[in-house]
Design a protein around this nucleic acid. Structure first.
Lengths: 224, 224
DNA sequence: GTTGCGACTAAACCTAAGTATGGTCCTCCC
DNA sequence: GGGAGGACCATACTTAGGTTTAGTCGCAAC
């Protein structure tokens, strides 16, 4: 994508490049990881505590978080739960010097990408980061599509939403009309408006949008 | 759900009831788990080795597998990998007396439901089993729907499949006709045949089927 | 009070979808 | 060589989908 990249100085960060965040109270660990990631060209930002991380404005690029289980105030696991509750879904890689199996299980159940015991091989960490970044990239792509669809859906009037639900459920215009008690022509006009507002190029297109938006669940469809 | 259950003798198994499989080389562990599960009304079948389990014909009901990490010949983790490779997707709950974190991570990454360290509380095991059975039930339901759809799709002729792909992608009959080089009327006839064979009640219905079948990926749709 | 908008509708019109009926051509298989 | 089935097409017809134009009604904001 970026041409003439070889000429760029290594410190010049591209706004599209992924970022690795590291939280550890041990400065030597932070530096070691920072060097490791920079050596493979990854932007890295380190923090001494979970609190500092939260102060930092969330980056709008694929990223992941390296977390020590044992953090200054909050445990890494509790911090993971906090982030989830706050709707922050950054992939997490745990490190630990003295973790146990229940901790590991809890972290993995909560969606952690990996759980590395110190000392770990650099390559294991790099592999985990690659997986985590890929996962975040996919998640962000999906979130973006969903946000756009929700934005379009929000421009629909209540009636249009209702019509969209029934139309994508497979009802004919006349059936929709009977269902909501209006004339068929009215449904047609709503329907045209829906297609324009949702920027749907065809009915199948609209149906797929409805699926992504989770519209019309709890009514018969493609089951057997 | 089941009425008049109290009158049934505990040994009378309903063919729809879930089953818990236990593999452990220690007979006392097998008995203890068997008693635990039976005490809550769960059908339980135990095995002394992975080999014995494989001899047993797979049950066609929601089930899960309790596995000791340390098995006679094969390790529990390797057995998990074997099952996955063989396409057997039964949810697994691991038990261990002397496991470590890398084992735990590997098991969880491979989809294990839980990883319990001995001694564990009965309630933890029961909770894990409940989760596992629920997971298997969902998976089986989805697999059943998918199998039915695939079965219907298999009855389509190559031409019909092609038309279905293009129609569910949102092309009009005349566009499909131009695309494959036939008359519009021919497309209409194929289309009618498709609706009958797939038992689709409407175009949105067919579109959802196509989605589940993964048809027509790699062409523009509901993106922004 | 009038402007804007959502919801509704009619009439007229056009295109798309779907269903017979009837038929050709080809290929594979018994 | 006769039958089955897939693919194809024409004619004729019906129903469904969709747009344009034009207009009513009610309500909330300015």
């Amino acid at each position: 994508m970026v041409t003439g990249r070889a000429a760029s100085p290594p410190t010049q960060a591209n706004a599209e490049d992924p970022i690795v965040f590291v939280i550890d109270d041990d400065a030597s660990v932070r530096d070691a990881l920072s060097n490791l990631f920079r050596s493979v060209g990854l932007r890295t930002v380190t923090f001494g505590s979970a609190h500092e991380f939260l102060q930092h404005k969330p980056a709008d690029v694929p990223s992941c978080l390296i977390l020590d289980i044992r953090l200054p105030r909050l445990s890494g696991l509790d911090f993971q739960a906090e982030l989830a509750k706050a709707g922050i879904h950054i992939p997490i890689i745990f490190m630990t010097g003295h973790g146990d199996i229940p901790m590991t299980v809890r972290a993995m159940k909560a969606g952690a990408v990996d759980f590395l015991t110190k000392p770990f091989r650099d390559q294991d960490m790099l592999d985990a980061v690659t997986t985590a970044i890929d996962r975040d990239r996919s998640r962000r792509d999906e979130a973006k599509v969903l946000a756009n669809l929700r934005g379009a859906f929000a421009t629909l009037t209540p009636r249009e939403r209702q019509v969209m639900t029934l139309v994508t459920a497979g009802l004919m215009n006349k059936q929709v009309a009977a269902e909501i008690g209006v004339a068929e022509i009215t449904v047609k006009i709503h329907r045209g408006q829906i297609m324009r507002k949702m920027a749907a190029k065809s009915l199948p297109d609209l149906v797929r949008m409805a699926e992504i938006l989770g519209i019309g669940r709890a009514s018969g469809g493609a089951q057997t």
